[in-house]
Amino acid sequence: MSKIFPKSANALPLQIVLFLAVAGTVATAAVTYWVTPKYTRVGYAPTQPVPFDHALHAGQLGINCVYCHTNVEKSEHSNVPSTSTCMACHSIIKKDSPLLAPVRASFETGAPVPWVRIHKAPDYVYFNHAVHVNRGVSCVECHGKVNEMQVVKHDQPQSMSWCLDCHRNPELRIRDSKDVYNLDSETLAAQGRLEEAIARVHDWKIKPPQSCSGCHR
C-alpha cells in the first residue's frame, strides 16, 4: 500500500495546535490593544476651523477655563464659548488676523463657527460637568493638560471602566476647590493630604454612582 501522507505529516496535528494557540494569543492581544478607546479615541486631534491655541490662552496667559467655558459650573454641558467671548479681546488684539476671519464672520452674522467636537460621550451616557467640577474633580482628570496643548487632543480614554476607576475611589482623584481649574495642580492625595480627601468625600457626601442607572437613564 502506497503512503497517502508523507512522514512529515505526523508532526502536523501538533503544529496546527501550536499555530492555533499562537494565533489565538496574538488575536486576543490585538483586540485588547486596539479594540478599546485607549486606542480608538486617545490622540484624536481634529483640525479646527480656527486654530485656537489653548497652550497660549490657558497656559501662557493664564486665562481661567471658566472665562470661556462659562456654564461648566452650573450645567451638565460645558459650553463652547459664543464668538462674542472671543471678540471681547479680539476686537482689539489681532483684530485683522486672517486666522480669526471665521470668528469675525460669526460675530457679524450670528452663524456658528463649525468647531469639531473631540470628546463625545455616547448618547446613552448622562454626564454632568457641574457635579464633577463643583466637588473637586479638576478638568485635567478627564481632559488632560489642555493648558499645554496647542492643538487639543483626546487625552484620556473616557471608557466606562475608566469612569468607574474614579467612581470607586473618588478620594484619590479630588482636588482642593481652588485647584479645580489649575491644571498644573495635584490631587489632594498626591499632595499627601489623603485624610483630608477622605474627610471631604464624607462631608460633602460625594457618592459617585456605580449602579447602571447612575449614568445610563
Binding site: W34, K38, Y39, G43, Y44, P46
Partner: peptide
C-alpha cells in the same frame, strides 16, 4: 493600525 495614543485627525473608530 499603529500604536495607542498616536495623534490623528480622523474621527475615532467606533467598534
Amino acid at each position: 493600525l499603529g500604536f495607542r495614543g498616536s495623534l490623528s485627525t480622523r474621527p475615532p473608530l467606533e467598534v
